[in-house]
Amino acid sequence: MEKLSLHQIQHQLMDFLIKDDQTIEQEIMTQGNVDNKTRLNIYKNAYFSRLRDVIDTDHEVLGLYLGDKLFEQMVAGYIKINPSNNTSLRQYADKLPDYLQQFPPFSEHPILSELAHFERMLLTAFDAQEADRFNRQSLQEIPHENWPTMSFRLHPSVQICQFQWSTVESWQALKAKKNPEQAVKSPKQWLLWRNSERLTEFRSLEFVEQHLIDMLLHGNDFSSLCDYLLEINTDEDASNVALSYILKWVDQGILRQ
């Protein structure tokens, strides 16, 4: 029998792991009391359990929401159609929100995809790039004449998302080991970030604050924020209101230097 090349052996072993193609078994020497299927299945079990553990670790609360049976069904379905194509396992479950949105029975419960999305955002905030933050002292050092053209930037860990369902409320309940309320429609914007203590935080956003943060993301300066506030509210001094938002963001560690 002609010997296989290194390339052929590797492809056969990967096809066994990913597609359950048994061809590689013919290339294995029989040794001792352990048959070749058992030997090969050590690799297959390791492949599956490693990917399963990543999903389990990354999506602890989603797992609680689903319960063991549905969680294992989700894991098996996801792994089957999503072989890893990244050197890091950190990205392995990135497509889980899409999977839950597309495939029944999970797609019949849209809160599941949102829960997975929320947990992925927490992970992104957790290991986002470091950056020096604005503090009150550095704000005071901004020359008065520079304020109108001052553009504030968000810390790299900051993320904004909109959920249609009571997703974050359910996540909080499960995290506190309580039963979540039944999922209800509850559209809200959420802000997530990693604070200066390197702990991940999140809170909901009212429309005005969300709009102001959007303006920061688009590079608008302080005077533009004031102009917007002036448009929507004539009762208060727009620059004071804008400054109070800036101070709130500085205190929460949302603005980078």
Partner: peptide, 12 residues
Amino acid sequence: TGAHGINSHDLL
């Protein structure tokens, strides 16, 4: 650890 761009995340 892998072939044809797929990673097994195992030491094969």
